[in-house]
């Protein structure tokens, strides 16, 4: 059985990106979206894998939710941020983009996550070295990069879908 076969299929309009973009089942985009329903279901499966993995390493589900909320807030995706914030447990303060961490190690981790999220092009080898100095091992560096990268995908998908909805709405009005 391949990974795609294991994806739990649900009503595509109930997936995270479609429910938060506001695109409805009655929209003109319905046919296009239904043709790609496998992709939206796989995107939800990716959310589970990145936010709620069985093997979470140094970053448990609460911390991952907080980091995801932080990135969503940085991109003014407040509804998405609040969805993740609900699962952040004791790490809620990490979700606030103005919070920079209290320990040296956490400061390094948040600094890395902020740079990857908002200034990707200027990430250099030294940023990875700084994480290693903050006692983040290789596997956890990959986990942080995957979390950040997935959020970049999810946020852009929501923003793009919202535009599709907006364009259709405007045309209906005129």
């Amino acid at each position: 059985m391949g990974a795609t076969d294991e994806v739990k299929m649900k009503n595509v309009f109930e997936t995270t990106v479609l429910s938060l973009s506001g695109v409805e089942a009655s929209s003109e985009a319905k046919k296009a979206i239904q043709n790609r329903s496998n992709i939206f279901n796989m995107s939800d499966a990716a959310e589970d894998a990145v936010l709620r993995p069985r093997e979470y390493g140094a970053f448990d589900h609460g911390m991952r939710a907080a980091l995801a909320a932080r990135i969503a807030f940085q991109h003014q995706e407040d509804d998405l941020a609040h969805k993740y914030l609900e699962d952040a447990g004791n790490f809620k303060k990490v979700a606030n983009p103005s919070y920079k961490g209290e320990t040296k190690d956490l400061k390094s981790i948040l600094s890395f996550m902020d740079k990857v999220a908002e200034d990707t092009r200027n990430v250099v080898a030294g940023d990875i070295t700084a994480l290693k100095s903050a006692h983040v091992n290789d596997a956890d560096i990959v986990r942080l990069a995957e979390l950040n990268s997935f959020m970049a995908y999810q946020i852009r998908l929501i923003a793009g879908l919202r535009l599709m909805k907006g364009a259709v709405d405007d045309r209906d009005i005129t």
Binding site: A145, S149, Q154, R156, L161, M164
Partner: peptide, 21 residues
């Protein structure tokens, strides 16, 4: 348009792995 949004968003993901790691 949907496929363009998907492919562009996907590379927001892929770039952050390839360029960062």
């Amino acid at each position: 348009i949907l496929d363009l949004i998907l492919s562009t968003s996907l590379f927001g993901w892929a770039n952050r792995l390839m360029h960062v790691l």
